[in-house]
Design a protein around this nucleic acid. Sequence first.
DNA 1: TTACATACTGTGTGCGCACACGGAAACAAA
DNA 2: TTTGTTTCCGTGTGCGCACACAGTATGTAA
Lengths: 357, 357
Amino acid sequence: MKNDNSNLRIKDIARMAGVSEGTVDRVLHKRGDVSIKSLEAVTKVLDEFNYTPNILARSLASKKIFRFIYLIPQNQPGDYWSTVEKGFEMAMPEFAGYNVSFEKACFDQFDVNSFNDVADKLLQNLPDAVFIAPIFKDETLLLTNQLSEFGVQFSFIDSMIEEADFLTYYGQNSTLSGYIAAKFLVEQLNTNDSILVIRTKRKGSVSNQTRNRYDGFMNYLKENDLVSKLQLIEAELLDDNEASNKELLRNLFNQNPNLRAAITFNSKVFRLARKFEALEINNVRLIGYDLLDENIAFLKKGVISLLLAQRPEKQSYLSAKDMCKKLIFNQEVNKINYMPIDILIKENIEAFMHFSE
Amino acid sequence: MKNDNSNLRIKDIARMAGVSEGTVDRVLHKRGDVSIKSLEAVTKVLDEFNYTPNILARSLASKKIFRFIYLIPQNQPGDYWSTVEKGFEMAMPEFAGYNVSFEKACFDQFDVNSFNDVADKLLQNLPDAVFIAPIFKDETLLLTNQLSEFGVQFSFIDSMIEEADFLTYYGQNSTLSGYIAAKFLVEQLNTNDSILVIRTKRKGSVSNQTRNRYDGFMNYLKENDLVSKLQLIEAELLDDNEASNKELLRNLFNQNPNLRAAITFNSKVFRLARKFEALEINNVRLIGYDLLDENIAFLKKGVISLLLAQRPEKQSYLSAKDMCKKLIFNQEVNKINYMPIDILIKENIEAFMHFSE
DNA sequence: TTACATACTGTGTGCGCACACGGAAACAAA
DNA sequence: TTTGTTTCCGTGTGCGCACACAGTATGTAA
């Protein structure tokens, strides 16, 4: 290719190839009805000048409407998945001009049937692209295989299934984020101090993310030979019994005066913080994950020392943007994208939140 | 306004207002030659249906080319200002379709005359928008006053001049970033430990940013009553004498066995790190600013413990984007935007860098 | 020969908008 | 009356592209 002359038009290509604009159009859109001779002539000129269509004109003239659907867990304002949804909502107005429409399809993350239901409905009315949070691995794979078969592009957010032929993945390196949490948690501890590790099972299942974070956490302790020097106390809180949870914590702290740090690997550290506040537990370093409204409030108050975050709204926004790049702008995109692991403390949370709009 | 019917066209507005498309066009562009009666009729319909033009069609039909110019210090690959420039370069292809062209105008940040030269040249051939890093306050104000007079929009990056009538500012809260640096630096120190504070004057001047960071740093120490408990050792490195700098450091460390932490407030902490490496100084917590290539390398090696960053490439990119929002998409933008203060350590730098592309 | 299918190609129209141009209408001056 | 001026308004064209449609050329069968 000679140069990136981007103001070259179909008309110019046609003239140079010695054919009409219609023929060039047929080549560009692989519509057929073109003789081999013409095809070669056009392709040659196209390559030589590295023709790129004017996206504005294309979108203006085209009647094609792109249907994008996102499959994520049902959510409430302020929780994790609502932030993910916000990212898609940010993308909507930006790409509306290019005839992209977004549809939402939520499922119950604790009910695989609800996932299958929306998956079935989706397959009956195929969209142009799908974004999936693959909570249910096997069922998701079933869906994505079908999508591949029909030539429908799809992307993963939050976590990924390596076997599937997805366009992009945006998510966090959870193991690493557990590792980092450990580093900050033990920083100021002395030998024989204790760490409280809270593991909440929700409806009997532990998510991949949560498990990976725990593994990363333990890796750090092992690598730095801290397992023997620090005492690890693992406890499990019940999802629905606030009173007994509080009692449990009270006892734990009474029995372990050296308890100086606490961590939980799901996004609900605010529940722990709430208890800490109620029990007037100070001098305990508390670290958690994700920027839920309630987590942020406790971080600002100083009950939570540090939060690790992963910009969930960017995950969805960039997924959508990449899909447009691929389908509309015909650009290449990067397949696997690990989000930065943001370290948030009382002092930098304000600017961080404000910046994300 | 009734609704946000965005697929309403000029033709529809014209019909509803009982005038021709040309008249609607004249109203939209304030081109005059419209009777009061028509003006009112059109304005009424426009408001009622909250008409928004189709940006794609507008850009396609319009022959206007937007000239954006950015005024930043001359830079070398890998240094701070080159990252700022990268942000503008990222914006270029994204907005090229909308007929936006970017021009670069660099000056010597230690020579006010060079700034005045480019400012003069700029005024002789007025662009549509200007982005300025206001290194020289008074001279910048002289320029921006002229720009305001001619109705040329301008934005500040890195730092701002409050008196000027700028469109946006993107930059860091430097005082806060100094405060946070102090928090992380003293975290693991004991009473009577010493902190080395390196202050490099470049060509006799200290930038606002650097001074603010220092102030924030001292604020933290005062607020936490550490000034008396920790010993502060201030030293000044020379810009051009590596050998004597090394000697100076060697002596400092010999004389102060309690030296456990070091910090410098400009972006060149790698120079300090280099000396630390050469002198085989370990066990000293070193904190610095900004993600220069060399800083990152020392962070990964463990010589630098922590870097505070401010996403300079986002500052310029978002400035450019906001300018387009204002001038082309006719959207409102937020005036003052503090960047997040990113906390980078060995473990999370990789994903952070990769993510920023 | 005509009729008709096949293979390919060029032209025309419209997407929504910007903008030039040529007018009409009303009125004043000659 | 004619001529000119001012004020206002509608129409036509083109931006680069997608796509429908009407062709032309050639071959094949009746």
